[in-house]
Amino acid sequence: MASTTLITKFAHLQIPLEDVLNATNNFHHDNIIGRGGLGHVYKGQLQRSGELIKISALRLDCKHGGGVVEFWTEVSMLSDLKHPNIVSIVGFCYEKNERIIVTMYEAKNGSLKEHLSNPNLTWTQRLKICVGVARALSYLHYDQERGYGVIHLNINSSTVLLDENWEPKISGFKVSIKQSLNRMDQVILSEPIGTIGYMDPTIEKAKGVTHKSDNYSFGVVLLELLCGRKAFIPNDGHRLLAPFAIHHFENTTLQDIIYPDLRSQMSFQSLTKYSEVAYCCLKKERRHRPHMKNVLEELEKTLQIQLRHEDVVSPFYIIAFILLFPNFVIIA
Rank of each mutant, 00 (worst) to 15 (best):
E204C: 04
E106V: 05
S3D: 13
A242S: 12
P192M: 07
N31K: 11
L6F: 09
V329C: 11
F27T: 04
L225P: 00
N327K: 12
L127N: 10
G149W: 10
C93D: 12
L307M: 14
I53Y: 05
G208P: 10
D236F: 11
E145M: 07
V160E: 03
R263S: 14
I196Y: 03
E18P: 01
G132L: 01
N31C: 05
I151L: 03
D261H: 13
Y148I: 01
L189F: 13
K207Y: 11
L116Y: 10
E145T: 03
V20Q: 10
I151P: 01
K54H: 14
M77Y: 06
G36W: 11
K82P: 01
V220M: 00
H152Y: 05
F268S: 14
K283I: 01
V75A: 06
E51V: 08
S56Q: 10
T202D: 09
L6E: 08
W72T: 03
E164N: 06
A23F: 14
R289K: 07
S56E: 12
P119D: 15
K174T: 06
T4I: 12
Y317T: 04
H115D: 08
G39R: 04
Y42T: 02
K174C: 09
V69W: 08
F27D: 09
P315C: 12
D236K: 06
F268M: 11
V160T: 01
L137Q: 00
L181A: 01
I188Q: 09
I258E: 09
L223A: 03
E276K: 14
I319L: 14
K178Q: 10
S76P: 04
G37P: 08
Y259G: 05
D185H: 13
S111N: 14
E70P: 05
L241A: 01
L52M: 14
G39A: 06
W166T: 00
S49P: 02
L240N: 05
S213N: 04
P326D: 11
K63I: 06
K284L: 06
A107Q: 09
G237D: 14
V68M: 12
W166Q: 00
M1S: 04
T8K: 15
V69F: 09
P243W: 05
D214F: 02
D261Q: 12
C130I: 00
E106K: 03
G36M: 09
L52D: 10
Y317F: 15
C62W: 13
T4F: 11
L58V: 07
I53P: 03
E310A: 08
I330T: 08
T5I: 07
V102W: 04
E297Y: 11
I188R: 09
F268P: 02
P16G: 10
K169E: 00
T122G: 11
V68C: 07
N109M: 09
L241F: 02
T253Y: 05
P192Q: 06
L58I: 07
L153D: 02
T4K: 12
Y216V: 00
E298G: 00
L58P: 08
Y105V: 00
R126P: 05
N235I: 08
G219N: 02
Y148D: 02
N182V: 10
Y42V: 01
V175E: 09
Y42E: 07
K230S: 08
